[in-house]
Simulated scan of single mutants.
Amino acid sequence: MEESRLERKLKLEIEKRDGMALKFVSPGKAGVPDRILMLPEGVAVFVEVKAPGKKLRPLQQKRAIELERLGFPVETVSSDAEVEGLLEKLFPLEFIK
């Protein structure tokens, strides 16, 4: 499945950069993002990984809004290019040539 491959890629790339990409499971609270990225210097980012062409379900949109209202960034990725774009956004100096 493409979604699980993208999730593995994201996890490995974050770990290469000394971060953690923890699987987020919240019993009793459906629709939470797939991963919590714990990055150097105390940065936390929630990420929903979708199969190419898929959109957030209404409950996932609601959970993303709830997290953003609390001040947490929430990202969605559904392709290799979007994973790379997120990495560039989170680690911009690594992408300067």
Rank of each mutant, 00 (worst) to 15 (best):
K29T: 15
I14G: 02
K16S: 11
L10P: 09
G28M: 07
V25M: 06
D18A: 10
I14T: 01
P40I: 07
P40D: 06
E41I: 13
E15W: 07
E13P: 02
K11L: 01
M38P: 01
G31I: 03
F24M: 11
L10Q: 04
L39H: 06
L10W: 00
R35M: 01
V25I: 13
G31H: 10
F24H: 08
I14F: 01
A30W: 06
M20Y: 11
G28D: 11
V25W: 14
M20W: 11
R17H: 10
L39N: 02
K23R: 12
K29R: 10
E15H: 05
S26M: 08
K16N: 13
A21G: 09
L12E: 15
R35N: 11
M20K: 07
L22W: 13
R35T: 00
K11V: 09
D34F: 03
E15S: 03
D34H: 07
E13H: 14
V25Q: 13
G28H: 10
L22I: 15
A30R: 12
E13F: 03
D34N: 02
P33W: 00
L10I: 04
G28I: 06
P27C: 11
L37V: 11
V25C: 01
E41F: 13
M20T: 05
P27M: 06
K16G: 01
K23N: 13
L10S: 01
A21F: 03
V32K: 06
E13Q: 14
A30F: 07
L12V: 11
R17F: 07
K11T: 14
D18R: 05
P27H: 01
M38V: 14
K11R: 03
G28C: 00
R35K: 11
G31C: 03
M38H: 08
L10A: 01
G28L: 08
K11M: 09
M20A: 11
K23D: 07
